[in-house]
Design a protein around this nucleic acid. Structure first.
Length: 427
DNA sequence: TCTGGGGTCCTAGGACCC
DNA sequence: TCTGGGGTCCTAGGACCC
């Protein structure tokens, strides 16, 4: 198994089309040109961190003459396709894992030398440098890739962990959060068990890993020991959901402005759903104020409905979205972001309207009103503690008797279940 | 003044059914 | 104080990934 990963992909794409950028520090920005999401080696070397807000780096950028680009996903998608088609020729099977990564099932006789030839071919044909890691499982291939990248001058961007004399030496140098699937939180949990490196993880007791990290932990443990638990997915499964959202350049306050933005998002999301040949059965709409401005009143709400019938028609979805937005919109806030999610997607061809699929108005309690009232009772209505509420129902259509409310995570009122609220009984 | 936008999987618990 | 046993469906939340 090999993991092939493009280096600094977005920056490399920009360079492939503008060789004058070679050797210069380059960064590519997120949507809205807010954050730095790709950095060339030169940009990393002068200390620009991943994900940094652009405005924090302005000084370094002008001082070093860093070349700054807005992202161009059409270009990146096109370059990605070129790289993938070269890889596909080498592999027995392949999983395109992301825009800049693929897992390859390799022929038995595929050696590190073959990998070097492949790497050179990709650079020559596309201008994109890649790293290749080889290992007996996906996790080990990822680990090999990490080593290849971290020691690029030594490895030349290619590393075969499966035929390396001291794989455990590599693991001993790798902190747990350097492993694919172990993030900050799991690393802390592992550290609590005295596990700090990949090697210690590999040798840990499966039962205690299972207990503290669930099946995810156990799978990682096995993969680390060369037992394959993560399948190669050649055919990407159908999409589970589609989201479209954007931050506003500067905050907006009126319902009209939010509606306009939302119309855009609904159009994009439904277009995506149509392209996949799917239908949405549920829609969720959310809005947020600027979470970075601690001094401003904060408000964040989300709301969803199960649609009357599965659809991907933007007009229909827009009507529903507008109604949802009205229910969560409160005047007097400076909104920074809104978005829509189409979820519980079903296959267009497989969908048959059911006999029971008729309009059946359900009695609905006005949860929104209650939320507002509660926020009022809980103190400062300018900073509501309850941000989301949903009424429980079941498939019999009778409707549930309770609902769940969500409060701001850091609020002292935070809880996920407010069954005992007297208002719930009042209905 | 400026702080991204997508996704996935797993688990827990509510609310109902027989 | 005790309070069945087996399900399903749905949502929220946590954790991860690029």
């Amino acid at each position: 198994m090999a993991l092939v990963d493009c280096n600094n992909f977005f920056c490399s794409c920009e360079r492939a089309f503008n060789p004058a950028l070679m050797g210069k520090p380059v960064v590519v920005l997120s949507n809205n040109d807010g954050c730095i999401i790709s950095r060339s080696e030169e940009a990393k070397a002068i200390g620009i961190p991943m994900g940094a807000p652009l405005h924090e780096q302005q000084e370094v950028i002008s001082k070093h003459g860093v070349q700054v680009f807005s992202s161009n996903y059409t270009l990146y998608g096109d370059m990605s396709a070129r790289v993938m088609s070269i890889l596909r020729e080498e592999a027995l099977a392949m999983e395109v894992y992301s825009i800049d990564e693929a897992f390859l099932q390799l022929p038995r006789n595929f050696s590190e030398e073959h990998a070097r030839v492949l790497r050179a071919k990709i650079i020559q044909w596309t201008g994109i440098p890649v790293c290749i890691g080889i290992g007996s499982t996906k996790l080990l291939a990822k680990l090999a890739n990490r080593h290849a990248k971290k020691n690029k001058t030594l490895t030349g961007g290619v590393f075969d962990l499966a035929n390396y004399w001291d794989p455990e030496g590599i693991m001993a140098e790798t902190p747990t959060d350097g492993l694919w699937g172990v993030g900050k939180n799991l690393a802390v949990r592992l550290k609590g068990m005295g596990v700090k490196t990949a090697l210690e993880f590999k040798q840990a007791d499966p039962a205690s890993i299972r207990k503290s990290m669930g099946v995810i932990g156990e799978r990682l443990l096995r993969e680390l020991n060369g037992i394959s638990c993560l399948e190669l997915e050649e055919m990407p499964p159908d999409r589970k959901g589609v989201m479209a959202s954007r931050s506003f350049g500067s905050a907006v306050e009126t319902l009209e402005e939010l509606e306009e933005a939302l119309a855009n998002h609904v159009a994009r999301a439904s277009e995506k759903v149509r392209r996949f040949g799917l239908l949405a059965t549920r829609m969720e709409v959310f809005l947020q104020t600027n979470r970075f401005k601690k001094e401003e009143p904060q408000y964040s709400r989300g709301i969803g409905i199960t649609l009357d019938r599965p659809t991907h028609a933007s007009a229909e979805l827009m009507t529903a979205a507008r109604a949802l937005l009205k229910r969560i919109y409160r005047p007097g806030y400076r909104y920074k972001k809104t978005g829509v999610q189409l979820v519980n997607l079903v296959d267009e061809d497989a969908y048959q309207p059911s006999l029971f699929d008729f309009d059946q108005p359900k009695a609905r309690i006005d949860v929104d009103k209650i939320v507002d009232e509660l926020n009022h009772r809980l103190g400062d209505p300018k900073n509501p503690v309850i941000t989301r509420a949903s009424q429980g129902t079941d498939r019999s259509g009778r409707g549930g008797k309770g609902w769940k409310m969500k409060a701001e995570r850091h609020s002292p009122h935070y809880t996920t279940n407010w069954r005992e609220l007297p208002v719930a009984k009042a209905g």
